[in-house]
Nucleic acid binder design. Structure first.
Lengths: 147, 147
DNA sequence: CAGGATCCCGCTAGATACTG
DNA sequence: CAGTATCTAGCGGGATCCTG
């Protein structure tokens, strides 16, 4: 390829991937991480579960067991939990550690990469909880206006 | 209800909703915003479309036309674009403005609420593009390890 | 130009049953 | 405990045709 200016090289390295393009791999990755269970799992692992009453802020990242995640993410099916955990492991966002006790014990833990995404996922969960009232108000206003 | 500061209202909202609970409305809201098209639309409206070559950083938030969004979000169907725009409008994240020209001209624009979510959505899109290589490497490593 | 309406296929989430 | 395997209903979402 021909010589590029510094600005062009910067643009190139920053725009190596573009999720606006249908064929770009980052589009699929974006689709993957834009998932309810991904968000909740990463939020859970990164914050040590639900914020405890009497403490401010969330906890530290810590490993969690399958059953613990299952209990925390109310309503998640075994299938979706396992499936999502596998895909997160494959993408290198979490690690899976099985110790051969009886019965077997399995821990899931964030990797560095997972931790970087966790920040966003927790913010997203917080955003939803924080602006729920406002969204609810907007919806009812919209519905009465349209109806 | 007694007067509350903004900080108190935030604390109240946070205490009221918990996306970890299946029945909580914020769980549904989280599911809504955890959507590929939501992410891309908000990223587009908040950054004035794709970053231009020769400039660093994304653009300013600006209104965009339906056809412009349609072109920018490569591969989106009319149905999904319209459907997603409607839901975003209903939730008060964007506004829809139609001017009675011939043919009709429609603009979509972020609200303040939408702008607050845009920050997260753009970070998410950036995250996907930034860590694409690393995820790809993790996947192939995982696949060879399992296979 | 900016959609609305309709048809229909594919996939996926969920339920259920079973296991190392 | 931490999954796997299988089945199925439901709907997300694309394609197509039509319109103010």
């Amino acid at each position: 390829m021909a010589t590029m200016t510094a600005a062009q090289q910067r643009a190139q390295s920053k725009a190596e991937y573009d999720a606006f393009l249908a064929a770009c791999p980052s589009r699929k990755l974006l689709d993957r991480v834009s998932d309810k269970w991904v968000t909740l799992i990463l939020a859970a692992l990164g914050s040590g579960g639900s914020p405890q009453l009497g403490t401010d802020g969330a906890g530290e990242p810590r490993p969690m067991r399958y059953s613990e995640l299952s209990r925390l993410l109310a309503g998640v099916s075994q299938k979706m939990l396992t499936q999502t955990l596998r895909s997160l492991e494959r993408d290198g966002l979490i690690t899976r550690t099985a110790t051969a006790t009886v019965p077997v014990t399995v821990f899931y833990e964030l990797t560095g990469l997972g931790l970087s995404l966790h920040e966003l996922m927790r913010s997203l969960k917080d955003w939803a909880e924080l602006h729920m009232d406002e969204v609810l108000a907007n919806r009812s206003e919209y519905d009465t206006r349209v109806a």
